[in-house]
Design a protein around this nucleic acid. Structure first.
Lengths: 120, 120
DNA sequence: ATTATAGTTGAATATCTATTCATTTGTCAA
DNA sequence: TTGACAAATGAATAGATATTCAACTATAAT
């Protein structure tokens, strides 16, 4: 039996709504990418890093000091943010300076703050 | 002198930038809530549910059919979304209808799509 | 009351992930 | 070259979480 053959454990109750929705649903790949984007920024450490970088570009040691965390941990997180195209970096001597590389991050943060204010 | 010398494993390189950033950083609680919001929508299943509900309110069975997943799994995820104030529901007879309860979700999805398009 | 259906919920499990630790790479200066 | 420092990286671990399974509640129909 094909492992793609999936039987749902309940009946369709509103067939028209389901069919209409299925027609309008984007491809799996779109959902994966959108969820991935939010997963990346949905972490307290990474959120702090992005806020910090919104003010200035900073080297890893500076970010580690601002967040009171180890260089290694910050470096791992910066790697994640870089691979996702949310930050970029430039090396200058022994230091590597990180900066935001996405104009959308600030926008979604503003909306998130509205959401939080609204739900108080 | 430095308030970080016992916490962080490296020196502050740019003291002024660090101090300036520390002054501008919001409270821990703000970061927790923002990250939590993105964590909630940063999951493929929940992203799909929110997209589906953007078209119509739907009962649990319908959503389970649209996503080809079990009722239980969908119900768990709907509980998460409900507790976060992102969806709400109403009972009608044996069925429980879910709908979006946040005007910000659609906005952040639009921005996320722009991000994804831009990074191709 | 009994039965069937829709949905919820707690526990268990398997997977994922953030941080730590140890090591390595890259750069500069002596 | 050697030493010092910034940063990156791989492996290991501990904690978080998505789904499944089984049991349960709620509602409606007979």
């Amino acid at each position: 039996m094909s492992r793609n053959e999936f039987i749902c454990d309940c009946n369709v109750i509103h067939q028209e709504v389901v069919n209409d929705t299925l027609r309008k649903m984007p491809e799996q790949d779109v959902f994966n990418k959108i969820a991935e984007f939010f997963k990346i920024i949905g972490d307290t450490t990474r959120t702090k890093i992005l806020f910090a970088l919104d003010n200035n570009e900073m080297c890893v040691c500076d970010i580690a000091n601002v967040l009171s965390m180890s260089k290694s941990s910050i470096s791992h997180q910066l790697g994640t943010l870089r691979r996702s195209g949310i930050v970029k970096c430039r090396r200058q001597g022994k230091e590597v300076y990180y900066m935001l590389d996405d104009e959308h991050v600030k926008q979604v943060f503003e909306i998130a703050k509205e959401h939080i204010e609204h739900k108080k």
